[in-house]
Each structure stands twice: as C-alpha cells, then as structure tokens.
Design a protein around this nucleic acid. Structure first.
Lengths: 118, 118
DNA sequence: CGGCATCCCCAAGGATACTG
DNA sequence: CAGTATCCTTGGGGATGCCG
C-alpha cells in the first residue's frame, strides 16, 4: 500500500487521506499518540488485540508518511518513543469532526472532547 | 463487516466512523453523491475501476448505514437513484477537513472547495 | 524491551456470466 | 438498466518464534 502513492491519481485529498489512515489500527494509534507520547509497549497495551508485528508495521507506515515521529533513546533497556509530528497533529485535528460524527450518528451520542485532556 | 457493529466497543466515534467509511469506494461514492444524485450506471462511470458487484455491495452497506438513500423509480427501463441522507450529508461534511488535510499534506496543495454547495 | 522473520488465514475486493 | 450469483485473487492482518 505504501507504494501506490500516485500523486494526482486520487479523486481528491480525501482518498489520499484515507490511504494514510486506512490501516486497521492507524486511527487508534493516532488517537493514543494525540493524548501523549507512547513507547512501543505502552502502545501495545493501549491497543487491546493488536500484535507486535502489526503494530510495528502500522507504526512504520505512519513514520514513513511522516505522521508519527520515532525517537530512539540510546539506553541500556531499549527505549523507543513515538509521538505525533506536526503533520500528524494536523491529521488528528482533521479527524476530529469525523470522530464527532461517529459519536453522534453511530454510537448514538456521547461526543467526547476528542483527544484533548481527560 | 456489517455485523461487527458492537456498540461501545469502539475507542471512540472515530473507529465507528472508520468502520462506516472503511470500504474501498465508500468515500468516492460519498463524494460523488455529495455533488448530485446519481443512478447506478452514472455512479459506475464516475468510479473508474469499480465493478458492479462491488459497487452494489458498497452501496448496500451505505444504505444499511443510512448514509445513502435508494430511490427506486418504477419505470419501464429500471431506474434507481442514489442520494445522500441527511446523515450522509453530515458525514460528508465531517469528511471535508480530512480531505483538506490530504490535499495539503499528501497531494501537496490544491485544497479543492470540497463537495459542499459549489 | 523493541522489533523483525515466517507462515497462515480469511474477508474484502475483483472478474465474469447471467437474470428481472 | 440494475443488479445477483459464482468463483478466484490478494494482501492486510494474526500467531509464533527468534534476535539485538
């Protein structure tokens, strides 16, 4: 999926965005990172059901797309932190209305204040 | 995918929305219907590459989700018109920011005026 | 701890043919 | 015209195991 980046081949930016956000766990990752920086293990715990392989893959794609920043801390116990890039933060913001829509029309109310505080 | 509607099982409305909009052609259909009412054939022509089976399937799911309205005109040559429901229109609107993001960050500029009123 | 390598599976999506 | 039915392919995603 990473290779089918054909600039201009999309109907509009929407298709392009869907391509970036299309992964099964992408939005959840974005949502998690929108709250705070996470390290691999934390992310894994934050996403019940995801396997390391898949999480690593989704993360890699997001990093490739410059949505997520990968910070490797050179410590004795390996420590890697993932955070949103400015672009990722913008994506998250752009996703907010969609989340609100889902809350209202699918879940039936409960428009959460997005990934702000809590 | 239509059956895995587990109310409350989503992290937030975002997951729910992604579930609704997750199909490969869903957003394109929404985009098309956002501009004007389309009949089956028109939609097919508007979505280069889609097959009848898939288009019909995606359409059926969108109808199930009350995103799209299916109007069967009882005429001699079968005529069916698809249009957005209020909910679908709202979804389309919620999708706009995402489309804008994609235009800016993925396609590299060219923020189209979206499928709003035009 | 973090993350690659391998193998496997299944459902979404595609191609084709046929019908009301 | 507007689908439905059938069969097939693909690859995203899941499970396991090993390595730095």
């Amino acid at each position: 999926m990473r290779e089918l980046r054909r600039p201009g081949a999309f109907h509009c930016g929407l298709d392009a965005a869907m391509d970036v956000v299309g992964g099964k766990w992408k939005v959840s990752i974005l949502w998690a990172l929108g709250e705070r920086v996470h390290r691999f293990g934390e992310l894994r715990r934050a996403l019940p059901g995801v396997t390391e392989k898949v999480l690593a893959a989704q993360l890699r794609e997001l990093v490739e797309d410059v949505i997520v920043h990968r910070e490797v801390l050179d410590e004795v116990p390996p420590r890697v932190e993932y955070s949103l890039t400015p672009r990722g933060a913008a994506l998250n913001a752009a996703l907010a209305p969609l989340g609100a829509w889902g809350s209202e029309h699918v879940l039936g109310r409960a428009p959460e204040p997005a990934a702000s505080g809590t």
